[in-house]
């Protein structure tokens, strides 16, 4: 907080009225942005400026603003969630930018994530992948065995947690040159594959989730590794490899 100062910036932001119309990049100038502001607070400030001049504010997805809900997206200056590593856009602060900078703000670009308006995209394809198999088929009766009845090696529990830390923001798809969703799917497959509770239906899970992923129009993985670098939660490529193994074993079973 010691570094607080104000900067003036130029913004080039994608504007698109709705899914059916064509969009374009518009240019804005915004003065007196505190470097302590988050990137989204900067957009709030711009929107306030737009509203005060009776213009339509920029629509963007956001909710928790603490890096966990996965709602915020934005391709900022050529990178998903902007230049800082392992943060979401809401955790990106304006101290990452300099006075006079021009900042490009674009929506995620993927056939499976069509633009709804301005910077908002439709990520329900992720939900459908989850619905295809991202669960353990256990009813919610509570009449399951005691939580400690099945020990889980700490190493496996920790790896499962790391995979489960995915926030479903879609940065992996957005940064992948192929628009592939393998990191997202790999993380979910891995979480369950690593836990004894998930192993029972591991075969069907991986086949169904991959089938749904392909149907949604995501691209293929070519192991460039962009997803891992841009993932705000540091989900490892190991999870994609694990999914590849799971899929291989499931296919030959």
């Amino acid at each position: 907080m010691a570094s607080n100062k104000n900067i003036n910036i130029h913004l080039k932001i994608w504007r698109q009225k709705n899914a059916k119309t064509k969009g374009s990049i518009e240019t804005y100038k915004l003065d007196n942005v505190s470097t302590d502001s988050s990137f989204l607070e900067m957009l709030d400030q711009l929107n306030e400026q737009l509203i005060n001049t009776q213009k339509e504010p920029i629509a963007f997805d956001h909710d928790c603003r603490e890096g966990i809900c996965g709602a915020c997206s934005l391709y900022i200056n050529g990178q998903a969630h902007g230049p800082a590593s392992q943060v979401t856009t809401c955790q990106l602060h304006m101290r990452s930018f300099k006075d006079g900078d021009t900042i490009y703000v674009e929506p995620w670009r993927s056939k499976a994530f069509p633009v709804i308006k301005d910077l908002i995209v439709d990520r329900s394809s992720f939900d459908r992948i989850q619905q295809a198999g991202g669960f353990v088929s256990v009813n919610t009766s509570g009449n399951t065995i005691d939580a400690n009845a099945t020990p889980v090696p700490k190493h496996d529990a920790d790896r499962a947690f790391e995979a489960a830390a995915c926030i479903g923001c879609g940065a992996c798809v957005a940064s992948c040159k192929n628009g592939s969703a393998m990191l997202f799917v790999g993380a979910k497959v891995s979480q369950y594959a690593l836990l004894p509770q998930g192993k029972v239906e591991a075969t069907q899970r991986v086949l169904n989730m991959v089938r749904q992923m392909d149907e949604e129009g995501f691209g293929n993985c070519t192991n460039t590794g962009a997803c891992e670098v841009e993932c705000p939660k540091g989900i490892s490529l190991e999870n994609i490899a694990r999914m590849n193994r799971e899929y291989l074993f499931a296919s030959i079973k």
Partner: peptide, 15 residues
């Protein structure tokens, strides 16, 4: 899978 490209893209930052 990506019908519209980014106006500004810096893939060299991650690959």
């Amino acid at each position: 899978a990506r019908p519209i490209n980014y106006a500004m893209n810096k893939p060299e930052r991650n690959t």
